[in-house]
Design a protein around this nucleic acid. Structure first.
Lengths: 204, 204
DNA sequence: TGTACATCAGTGAACGCGCGTTCACTGATGTAC
DNA sequence: TGTACATCAGTGAACGCGCGTTCACTGATGTAC
């Protein structure tokens, strides 16, 4: 903090992104404006223009960082879990939820409401990496379940993603107050399901 | 259209809600303002104040109507489907998705981003009715799967809801372009799952 | 059926606010020589 | 090491815009008698 009075900030771009993240979680998406971000970063409201031509550019850069952290949150949860596939699926779901709970407004910005530039290379790559992690979890689980067709394997992927995503959304919107973790898809598929098949191999 | 020049509108409240819905889907949540709603309904911008004290009140009334239509969309899809429980679960999921696809901005208003008054009686009741329909589908499916404990039954409920909700969100955000329907939870649980149990009744 | 009057639902002008954007400027930094 | 100068990153005033809100008003409707 010693050299604070410097005319040149030094690393304003990073400071603006940091301020944007704080502001976003404090006031929600409608509260994210260039003027407020500048004020929070301690510079005049015209300063951000040198780093981001408009709010969309700032949001896009923020979302790219967010996807990186999101991917890291899932990876971290997986690293702590046992290597068995069911445990890995569960851990990824918990990581997904943990990120959303820690950064609800950011999570919404990334997925739903944000006015983002999806042509941006950094954002595209960061989002693709997150999606690839999902695939990396789903594929061995599909093997484990004995899914052969590409359609079934893709549908399992969608089921895992959708349930994690839906639970995270409902949780941050306060609709899942009584549940502390996402539904355990792996357990349902491994231990509870299969009724029809085990009772009646080619049922209605 | 004949008596259009009347000074008194006659049914401005309903017209404002109709205009709000159109505007919401046309411009998204940030585009929903009292002034634009008034303009679209063909009245001066001060007129809505006689019917809605502020934008939140209008959004809340809109969301209450939306939850009614949402419940109806699921009921309609169920009515068209076979009475078997798996078909009913599938149909509800399709109804959920159909509503979200037909009214993406409204769907987001209802669940995520809308500044709604959740103390409002109409909204509470409409949302509760939607949730009850979900429970009405989940309960017989839990019976069918032989789930005994309350925890398992609640978790199945969350799994069904989360996967439908998550898929709907991802679909309206353009992340599921290659899939035309939600993942079929019922099929996975009935036909694909149960590996561990059928192979090894008390597995790890 | 006619009149007086209260009430209701709209108008339109005015206000202050925060926003993004522009622009001339100024101070700090880095480089050429 | 010293000086001139280009470039870069910030300032602060100004702009026009759309927003919610207020307020005196006005026209239509409904009711009492």
């Amino acid at each position: 903090m010693g050299k604070k009075a410097a005319y040149h900030h030094g690393n304003l771009r990073a400071a603006l992104l940091e301020a944007a993240l704080t502001l976003l979680e404090r006031e929600g998406l409608p509260g994210l404006t260039l003027r407020k971000v500048a004020a929070l970063a301690g510079v005049s409201h015209a300063a951000p223009a040198h780093h981001f031509p408009n709010l969309q550019a700032l949001s896009t850069a923020l979302a790219a960082i967010a996807f990186d952290r999101f991917t890291a949150a899932m990876a971290k949860a997986r690293a702590r879990a046992k290597p068995e596939i069911a445990a890995q699926v569960r851990a990824a779901g918990r990581g997904y939820l943990a990120f959303a709970r820690a950064n609800p407004a950011l999570f919404r910005l990334m997925f739903s409401e944000g006015d983002l530039d999806w042509e941006n290379a950094e954002l595209k790559q960061a989002a693709a990496a997150a999606f690839q992690q999902l695939q990396a979890i789903s594929a061995p689980f599909a093997d484990h379940l004995g899914l052969k067709t590409e359609a079934d394997r893709r549908e399992l992927e969608r089921l895992i993603w959708s349930s994690a995503h839906g639970f995270a959304h409902l949780a941050i919107d306060g609709k899942m107050a009584d549940a502390n973790g996402p539904p355990d898809v792996a357990r349902f598929l491994l231990e509870i399901g299969g009724i029809k098949r085990s009772r009646n191999p080619r049922g209605a």
